[in-house]
Every structure is written in structure tokens, then in C-alpha cells.
């Protein structure tokens, strides 16, 4: 098994392409122990993508694998995080995953 990979996500991270996003991330978790997701700055994002990532984070944790973002959330992704209220009661782990805050502090 390969140890790590960087998955470059397509710019449409909305429900219309949710199945594609889900397949890529699921396959990656199955095939690699460390996965970094590269999300385009200009990606269009909606809640379906947040759900996939949150479920993937849980799965990676359960299997002792590492899932992270290559870069802190920005652009539309960051806006959707705020609009959705996901960051309102975010844990340290959440903030670390989405915003890479432990590296910036």
C-alpha cells in the first residue's frame, strides 16, 4: 500500500458532483494511509462537500489514517464553513483540520 498521496480535487465541490467527490475521497482513504486534499481556491463548494469531508475525517480517525487539507480553507470553502455554522463550536481538531490553526499560532 502506498503511504501518502495528495488528491487534487476538481473545482466543482457541489451536490451536482458530489458522487465524484465521494468516490475520490473514499478510494483514497482505502488506498493510502496519509491523504492530503488540495482544494482549488476558486472551487465552488456547498454543504454536501462538508458532509463528505466530515464523514471521511471520522473514517480516517477510526482507521488510524491521516486526512488533511493541503492548505487552510479559503475562498468559497471558508465562506461555506462560516455560513453553515460548522466552525461556531469547532474543536481544536476541527480548527486544526480546516484552518491549520496550530501551525499558524
Amino acid at each position: 500500500m502506498e503511504t501518502s498521496t495528495v488528491i487534487r480535487m476538481h473545482p466543482n465541490l457541489c451536490v451536482s458532483d458530489a458522487h465524484a467527490s465521494y468516490s475520490i475521497i473514499s478510494e483514497s482513504i482505502r488506498g493510502f494511509s496519509s491523504i492530503k486534499l488540495s482544494i482549488p481556491h476558486d472551487a465552488t463548494v456547498d454543504l454536501s462537500f462538508l458532509q463528505i469531508i466530515e464523514a471521511a475525517r471520522l473514517r480516517a480517525n477510526e482507521q488510524g489514517k491521516s486526512l488533511s487539507l493541503l492548505e487552510p480553507a479559503s475562498g468559497e470553502l471558508r465562506r461555506v464553513l462560516d455560513r453553515s455554522g460548522l466552525m461556531t463550536a469547532a474543536t481544536i481538531s476541527d480548527r486544526s483540520f480546516w484552518l491549520h490553526e496550530e501551525t499558524t499560532q
Binding site: I29, Q51, A55, R59
Partner: peptide, 19 residues
């Protein structure tokens, strides 16, 4: 606004287009 993600199923049971 507080998001409640407690109903999120495991990844393998997640339907990507469901809320």
C-alpha cells in the same frame, strides 16, 4: 448558528447527495 453533525453516517453508508 450551530451545526449539528451528529446524524452524519459512517463514510461507507453516506449518500453523497443526502443532507
Amino acid at each position: 448558528v450551530l451545526l449539528d453533525k451528529s446524524a452524519l453516517p459512517p463514510l461507507e453508508k453516506l449518500e453523497p447527495t443526502a443532507l
